[in-house]
Amino acid sequence: MNPIDDDILQAYVDGELDAAARARVEAALAQDDALARRVRQARALGAQLRDAFDPVLEEPVPARLSALLQPGVAPATSRAVESGRVARVARHRTPRRWLMPGAALAASVALLAAGLWWWNAGDGVVRMRNGVPYAAGVLDRALDRALASEPDAQAPVAIGLSFRADDGHICRTFTVRTPPERAGLACRSTAGWALPVLGPAVPPEGGELRQAASGLPPAVQAAVDARLRGDVFDAEQERAARAAGWH
């Protein structure tokens, strides 16, 4: 039988051997205490490394990172990114290197920044999951159950319009009436109601009335316009969508 060399032993610890080679190592380990000790040491080192770094997986993702992955945020120009050095990245603010096709997007980014502040205020209507904000608490329940066609003036959350987005998911606009008042867009995914846009609510203005969405911040309106494929749901479609679990 060939001796178990260092490469084989390391490959054994790292799970790189096939069954036959593994069995050969295990037979040798049963006979050789020194070999077995080296395997234990290598495994202990692996455990130390995992203990040191796995907790990162559970840490909340900083808002400045999750904000980069919000839908509707234009990517930075590749030239700026390729020349950008890590050390020059500014912390604690949204990077400036956005492409801005229009004022709506600018408003969207501003609203997002404000929204991040609101999320941090954290009164239980938003939870972060893998760096993405999702509806929680009364907001989650309202999005699941409330119908715009049956408005309840006392409810903590008012639903605006519902529609099927161009990616096939159902989205609903909403206003949280309890202070701090917020408005936003929620889109249904398997993980819950994701919140691509959320920011402070604005009082309805006398100008442009637009169905149930009047009074929505321009960034929410822009997010709706960017996703809307057909028509917004009427009362019957909204009810049917609820019955189908918003799928």
Binding site: P62, L68, A76, S78, V81, V86, V89, R91, P95
Partner: peptide
């Protein structure tokens, strides 16, 4: 996290 930010920007740009 600065490194992650650069990685996200590069990945989106590319």
């Amino acid at each position: 996290d600065d490194l992650v930010q650069v990685v996200l920007e590069r990945a989106l740009a590319r």
